[in-house]
């Protein structure tokens, strides 16, 4: 019973991490978003192309690279649209201090006139590691169903 309770608590902590991750991006709290990653982790946006019949990586950066890229975000000319994540954690498989999780997500975009539309849809495929009692991403992958993304953003998804 104690073991089952610990598993439930771990699962809830992982689902909580996934929800908080989305909220950090919506708030553009990028430094806080980075603290959700383990030291040797990476972030990726993956997609597929039926035209070249191949999977693709649209963005893959280590935590260190992310730090530099995100620190420069405000230097760019950027899409002024506001993005909002809708995330549904689906499953988490826990094995000691390691875990895998899958979540479904969609992101809406609201333009400067207040029009909202669906921006992208896909799923997060995450590997997690528990360090000092806290679940962090070893890898956080946004695997897109959407292939036509417009307008582009300088932020992670």
């Amino acid at each position: 019973m104690e073991k089952e309770l610990a598993q439930l608590l771990d699962k809830e902590a992982i689902f909580d991490l996934i929800r908080v991750t989305a909220a950090r991006l919506d708030d553009e709290a990028l430094e806080e978003w980075l603290t959700l990653f383990a030291p040797d982790s990476f972030y990726e946006i993956a997609a597929a192309s039926p035209e070249i019949q191949s999977a693709m990586s649209w963005w893959k950066s280590s935590r260190e690279e992310l730090e530099k890229i995100l620190s420069e975000v405000t230097e760019h000319v950027r899409d002024p649209g506001k993005r909002l994540h809708l995330v549904t954690p689906i499953l988490a498989e826990i094995n000691g201090n390691n875990a895998s999780a899958i979540s479904h997500f969609s992101i809406t975009r609201t333009d400067t006139d207040g029009r909202s539309s669906l921006y992208v849809a896909g799923r997060y495929e995450d590997e997690l590691v528990k360090i000092d009692g806290r679940w962090l991403y070893a890898s956080h992958r946004a695997v897109l169903d959407t292939r036509m993304v417009e307008p582009f953003t300088h932020l992670p998804l």
Binding site: W59, I69, R78, P151, H154
Partner: peptide, 17 residues
């Protein structure tokens, strides 16, 4: 991807322009 990917540094700016 750094310059020209869908989430790249330059491409988004060109599209907005």
């Amino acid at each position: 991807n750094m310059f020209w990917g869908p989430a790249g540094r330059n491409l988004g700016e060109d599209i907005i322009a």
